[in-house]
Design a protein around this nucleic acid. Structure first.
Lengths: 236, 236
DNA sequence: TATCAGTTTATGGTATACACAATGCTCACA
DNA sequence: TGTGAGCATTGTGTATACCATAAACTGATA
């Protein structure tokens, strides 16, 4: 997984750098690039059928975003976040998401609510066929969609990046994710969605908070207290 | 302003890319790189005494952060934000900063409060000698310091980036910034600081909200209703 | 088995080349 | 004097080749 950059990719991203950035990020979040092995520039360039130059620039950005981390002169590795870092990300989202849900209930346009619905449906379909990566991706789209509907691109992107990093962590536990977890999450998404459609800001914010707590609990159930400290201390 | 990368710069940033990133960002926020003229890679490389490659990588990151924006095959330009974008940034910070101030009042360590105090003092000194760029920089350090004291690096960095973009905008109006404005802002910072030191989370949050509203008002007074729409529609 | 030297690998950086796009300039022409 | 076509210039976006460095691997030797 990490196919050559074709015409289609270039239509969405004007430059090779951008296309490579998206392709590599996708591959990381799909789990196609396993987090143990290093990302070798030349290999990536070969896979994408481009030269090292735009690959390096894409990697520089991904590094800055905290998805990959360099070990000096040893290579770039997909980040292994610690539990503490993930909890920090949860906290960050808790500060922001209820705020966004509230505003989304105020401002969401019809097209935006349609986008939310389709993200939920996508998530549901992925859950049923046990496609973890797809389920997580749909979740990111849903949360980012709320941000957009709230009319604040800055916060929307912030949440999206946080979700990406959380999902990256969760992919490491994907064997432990079961269908029921995903279904629960989807139900909560749908509840938030309904509150937004019904223009009920208080409910949207409340349900958003509930969802985040619920996610935290599922996270604790997944990760538990096991002190698997194989995580590299890589705080980009 | 944009001196060659020396030993000192390399000590703080391990690679040329990182050093270039910091140097260029500094120059932009100092106002040394005027926002009208393009940032020419080769010129920057020459000034920093390095080759184009690390400069390009640094620029790719700055572009991704929304401080500079490319015009396809015409060059990179320092972003000119619109009023609407700045207001979006204010809103984002309003969602986050009271949250951080509250937590900082809980968790701030002695070293962290010392850092806050020194940032405030720096801001005061800059205000008296009418050093706008320095005053803004001190403000960024103060706000980022609260984020760090709150124990959430993710949110701290988010606020810091937002402040950077706001300050970039404000530098465009630096002729209109007067000492009294800066003094007012500094007083508000000091009030937040006191609440944090006195371990009064409610007061810290309240004063943080007050400060943000006050900043917004000063912003409106500065920018007013004048429809100077010379701003490029550059939303990175 | 343990150690040490040589080989391999891949980054971080330099340098160069070139297509393409946009801009500016020149100069002929009206 | 004013206009416009064509050319030169500029600078990005990408490719390519090369090097120093440092870590990892390999294998020979004691």
């Amino acid at each position: 997984m990490l196919t050559p950059i074709d015409q289609l990719a270039l239509e969405r991203a004007p430059t090779f750098r951008e296309a490579a950035y998206h392709a590599i990020k996708q591959a990381i979040l799909n789990g196609s690039l396993e987090s143990g092995q290093p990302l070798v520039e030349e290999r990536l360039a070969e896979m994408l059928q481009i030269s090292r130059t735009p690959v390096r620039e894409a990697l520089a950005i991904l590094e800055h975003e905290g998805l990959i981390a360099p070990v000096y002169r040893r290579g770039l590795f997909v980040c292994k976040l610690t539990r503490e870092q993930v909890i920090e990300l949860f906290t960050a989202n808790e500060a922001v998401e209820p705020f966004l849900a509230r505003r989304a209930a105020h401002y969401a346009s019809p097209e935006q609510t349609v986008a939310l619905e389709s993200a939920i449906r996508d998530g549901e379909a992925c859950a049923e066929r046990n496609d973890i990566a797809g389920f997580l991706r749909a979740g990111r789209i849903f949360h980012a969609g709320i941000g957009r509907a709230a009319g604040n691109l800055t916060l929307a992107r912030f949440v999206e990046r946080n979700e990406e990093r959380v999902d990256l962590f969760l992919m490491g536990y994907r064997k432990a994710v079961d269908v029921e977890m995903m279904r629960t999450s989807n139900r909560e998404h749908r509840a938030i969605y309904r509150a937004i459609v019904q223009r009920d800001p208080d409910a949207a914010a409340r349900l958003s908070i509930y969802h985040l707590q619920s996610v935290r609990e599922r996270f604790a159930a997944l990760v538990g207290d096991d002190d698997r400290d194989d995580a590299l201390p890589l705080d980009n």
